[in-house]
Write a protein that binds this DNA or RNA. Structure first.
Lengths: 144, 144
DNA sequence: TATCAATAGTTGACATATCAATTAAATTAA
DNA sequence: TTAATTTAATTGATATGTCAACTATTGATA
């Protein structure tokens, strides 16, 4: 089979799509003076939806390295958006929660986030969305 | 519309797919003792296919920041995989090329890379591939 | 032509990605 | 119960992502 140009490689296209979306979304956040990175937002949102959870679980759900999670959580703690609470009979893990400020922050910015999510799939039918989800999931399953 | 869980957000799925594929591919490279990162490989491959080109063009094609390109190119130069050549009558830009070592490196590792590309889309029909490409492209166009 | 504006690339600062090594705690095995 | 193993989180080192500031050069304009 003849070699593809890299632009025609699906993995390259997936990565480009992810990058382009992040660049766009980050600019929109910046424009509105919302002081958070996309990666930080994702962690906040996961904690909001799944709390209480441990750093290990957060790393798994976000597909990020535990070391990286540690560092980003410190930043989110400094911004007073999250807290860690001791788990009884377990001094190795801590439960992660949003602070009240964190809850407010997520609520205040969900409108913009919903707009971004919506914009990303503008013109898509429900069918196309389902198809895309399934195809992406199959790539993930192939790459394990 | 009711709020989605983050796992159901397409942008999240695209990012997870990209991350999972990179983690898998990097591990395969490491296993074989191939001393290169995915990001470095992508730059090498673009230079191979498009040379001669400038750093600006490379940044655009890879959707990476020029600052980041500068640093990665230094690493690739240190590994003697690429060179920069002066452009006549233009002392601001340089043309990027693979060295002979770079050409050899790409050739030696294309077999593995082809395997990884193939594995990522195992079980996909030509039709599904086309569909996926088009849907991804539409997201990119939406996010500009 | 002299000045100003735009462009390509670099560097600094900080956030994130990743691996390896470490620490502290929990679990298992002897 | 003690010792060995496994686990969760952290830290160090290096690569990458991003913005802002800067340098050198080129292009535009008065």
């Amino acid at each position: 089979m003849a070699d593809k140009e890299i632009e025609n490689v699906i993995l390259f296209q997936v990565d480009q799509t992810s990058k382009a979306s992040k660049i766009y979304s980050q600019r929109e956040l910046d424009k509105l003076g919302i002081d958070i990175t996309i990666e930080q937002w994702v962690l906040l949102k996961i904690i909001e939806e799944k709390a209480p959870l441990s750093q290990k679980e957060l790393a798994e759900k976000s597909l990020r390295d535990p070391a990286s999670i540690t560092r980003t959580l410190h930043l989110l703690e400094k911004k007073q958006l999250i807290t860690r609470e001791a788990i009884p009979n377990n001094r190795r893990q801590h439960n992660l929660f949003l602070t009240q400020q964190g809850v407010n922050f997520v609520n205040e910015n969900m409108t913009l986030v919903r707009q971004l999510r919506k914009k990303s799939i503008e013109g898509f039918t429900q069918n196309e969305l389902k198809t895309l989800s399934k195809l992406l999931l199959r790539i993930q399953q192939n790459m394990q």
